[in-house]
Design a protein around this nucleic acid. Structure first.
Lengths: 151, 151
DNA sequence: TATAATTATCTTAAATTTGAGATATGTACT
DNA sequence: AGTACATATCTCAAATTTAAGATAATTATA
C-alpha cells in the first residue's frame, strides 16, 4: 500500500475510533448524570461554574459548544431549579453572569463523587501510563482541530 | 501528591481532553456534512450503508447510538430524499433492511472525497506515528468502555 | 457627536432526539 | 397448540437543540 494511501486511511480510522471511544465513554457519564435528574448539557453548565466560578453565559456556551438559544434555555431551567442565578454585569450591561447558588454548590459537591467513579470506570481499560499518553495525544489533537477550525 | 489521587485526576483529565478533541474534530465534519444538505445523523446512517451494505434498521441504530424512534424518523427522511429504500426481510418479518439506492450510492461517492479532506484537515495536528498511537489507545479505550457498560 | 459595526442575550419557529408504549413477529417452554 | 418472553419497528408527546433574527449595549470610526 502506498504511503500516502496509508496516511489517508489512518485519518479516517482515527476519526472512527475517536467517535466510538467518545460515544461509549460518555454513555457511562450520561447514564450517571440522568440518575441525578439532569441531562448532559445541564450538567455541563453546572460543571463549568463549579470549576471555573461565575461565568458570562456567552463563555459557558463556548466552552461546551452549544448555541446561544440553547444556553438561554438551559440556564432558565437551572435557575428554576434554583441551582444557579443570573447576575447582570455592572461594567458591561450586555453581559449576564451565571453563578451557582449555595444549593447548586452543595448539589454538585454531592453528585461529583459518583460522577468521578463513573468516569474512572469508563476509562479503566487504560493503565496509568496509557492514560498519560492518550491525554497528551488528545490534547494535541483537540488544540490543533480547534485552531484549524476557521469560522 | 499521593499516587491514588494522581490516578483519579488522570481519569478526569482524560475525559475532558477526549470530549474537547471529539467536539472540535466533529465541528469540522459537521460543517462539511451540512454543506451537502445533511445533518450528522443522516450522514451517519448513509455512511454505515455505504461501507457495510444493507443493514437492519435496528443494527444501524446500534452502530451510531441513536434511539429506535430516531432511526425511524431519519430513515423516513432519507427515503423521501430517495437516497435509500426499505426492504422487508423475508426470513424474519419483524426486520426491515435499509439499502442505498443508486442515487444514494452516487451521492455518497460524490461527497466522500471532501468528507475525507475535512477529516484529514481536522486531525492533521498529529503526525502519522502519533495517529497510529492514538488509534491504538482509542480502540482500547472504546472497547473497554463498551464492555464495561452493562445495560 | 453621529454613524456604523460588534457583541451578548433573548425570542421564536422548526428540526431533531428521546422515552414510553403499541403492534406484530419470533422463540422458548409447558 | 398455547403461553410467556423477547425482539424489531413504529407512533406520539415531550424535551432538547438549532438557526435566524430581534433587542439592547458597547466599541470603532468618521
Amino acid at each position: 500500500m502506498p504511503e500516502e494511501q496509508q496516511h489517508r486511511d489512518d485519518s479516517l480510522l482515527l476519526m472512527v475510533v475517536l467517535a466510538r471511544a467518545y460515544n461509549w465513554v460518555t454513555a457511562h457519564t450520561t447514564r450517571e448524570i440522568r440518575q441525578h435528574g439532569l441531562n448532559p448539557t445541564e450538567f455541563g453548565v453546572l460543571e463549568v461554574l463549579y470549576h471555573k466560578g461565575p461565568q458570562p453565559l456567552q463563555q459557558i456556551g463556548e466552552k461546551i459548544l452549544i448555541s446561544s438559544g440553547n444556553i438561554t434555555y438551559v440556564v432558565d431551567k437551572l435557575e428554576k431549579k434554583q441551582l444557579l442565578v443570573r447576575k447582570p454585569c455592572a461594567e458591561d450591561r450586555r453581559v449576564i453572569y451565571a453563578e451557582l447558588t449555595e444549593k447548586g454548590q452543595q448539589f454538585l459537591a454531592s453528585i461529583f463523587p459518583s460522577h468521578k467513579i463513573a468516569i474512572e470506570q469508563a476509562v479503566s481499560g487504560l493503565n496509568p501510563e496509557e492514560k498519560r499518553s492518550a491525554i497528551e495525544l488528545l490534547k494535541k489533537l483537540g488544540h490543533s482541530a480547534q485552531e484549524r477550525f476557521h469560522k
